[in-house]
């Protein structure tokens, strides 16, 4: 035992130790800073070439022109994003028709009905859906789904079409909807369920009438994330949807409203924003040309749209976390 009357030396820490501590802290901080730098680098990279692009192509033309042909054999290039947006919307909306209802029902099943055993089997299996490489999904769509649909439901379907691609995008995004929605549903306090049962509600009424409304912001946030994922999806559409930027023909009006026949967009090939980027990248990467810059303009569009959606989803999700 030391004699505590002598003043203990509490401040001494060797310079080496302090240097070591500081070095480690600094190194870790530097690594953490790389994540911030990544964001900055993405924005700067996209912006610098996008600005170059918009100095050549007016932004109004980019946003309103309906023709996309960056590398025409002869004649002028046109850079109108509208056809691409329509292609992207086609895929996104169709995929949403698959992923949102299926994902929501899955979430309800997992959170309300499944035994813990079933849950422990189903959840990892669902995760597999998100883990399959997208190029594989694209291949499935091209060589299995399309021929199957062609043989059974839609004989007039073309080899490259939006429908098969969208179905695969939908399946791929199911786990995104189901896992986040399930988290939200599991976060609903049991008191609420008990209250429902106490009033004589059936399990169905409790699930759909109490749990789902109580977790609605979580569900909404999962929808937005899934849609944002579908917008940015690349390889499935590249492989299975073809690469033709088409404007759908606006058909006869139904009740005075212009009408686009869904079969027209779904069964034929089309082009999304991501496909357009990949198509340019297949040819021209050295930089300095307008198509090269156009790629970054498209990338910027994609980045901004997905970023806004993610932030939105975060804000909504934050609300349900606060509620309980």
């Amino acid at each position: 035992m030391t004699d505590s009357t002598e003043s203990p030396d509490l401040q001494r820490r060797s310079g080496l130790t302090r240097l070591k501590e500081g070095t480690y802290g600094g190194l870790f901080a530097a690594c953490a800073a790389i994540t911030l730098l990544t964001t900055v680098a993405i924005i700067v990279t996209l912006l610098s070439d996008a600005v170059a692009f918009f100095s050549q192509v007016p932004i109004t033309e980019f946003l309103t022109s309906t023709s996309w042909s960056p590398n025409p054999r002869g004649g002028g290039q046109t850079f109108g994003i509208v056809a691409l947006v329509i292609g992207t919307l086609t895929v996104t909306i169709t995929a949403a028709f698959v992923a949102l209802p299926v994902g929501t029902l899955t979430a309800i099943y997992l959170s309300e009905y499944a035994t813990s055993n079933a849950r422990s089997i189903l959840k990892p299996l669902l995760e597999i859906l998100a883990g399959i490489p997208t190029v594989v999904y694209g291949y499935f769509a091209l060589v299995y789904i399309t021929p199957a649909l062609k043989a059974t439901l839609f004989p007039e379907m073309s080899t490259f079409n939006a429908l098969s691609a969208s179905l695969m995008v939908g399946i791929m995004t199911i786990p995104m909807v189901s896992s986040i929605s399930e988290d939200a549903m599991s976060a609903v306090p049991d008191d609420l369920r008990q209250a429902g049962y106490g009033l004589g509600a059936t399990k169905f009424e409790v699930s759909t009438g109490i749990v789902v409304p109580a977790s609605i912001s979580g569900i909404a946030s999962s929808y937005i994330l899934a849609v944002s994922r579908a917008i940015g999806e690349t390889m499935i559409v590249v492989v299975a949807m073809g690469a033709q930027a088409r404007m759908p023909t606006v058909g006869e009006t139904v009740l005075g409203i212009p009408f686009i026949n869904p079969a027209d967009v779904l069964l034929d090939s089309g082009m999304t924003i991501t496909v357009a980027m990949v198509q340019i990248a297949g040819g021209d990467l050295t930089g300095g040309t307008i198509p090269y810059d156009a790629m970054f303009a498209l990338g910027l569009t994609l980045f901004v749209v997905t970023l806004v959606m993610n932030v939105l989803s975060d804000i909504i999700a934050e609300r349900y976390r606060e509620e309980y």
Partner: peptide, 8 residues
């Protein structure tokens, strides 16, 4: 808080 006469 004094420990051995030194305020920690």
């Amino acid at each position: 808080v004094e420990f051995g006469g030194k305020n920690v």
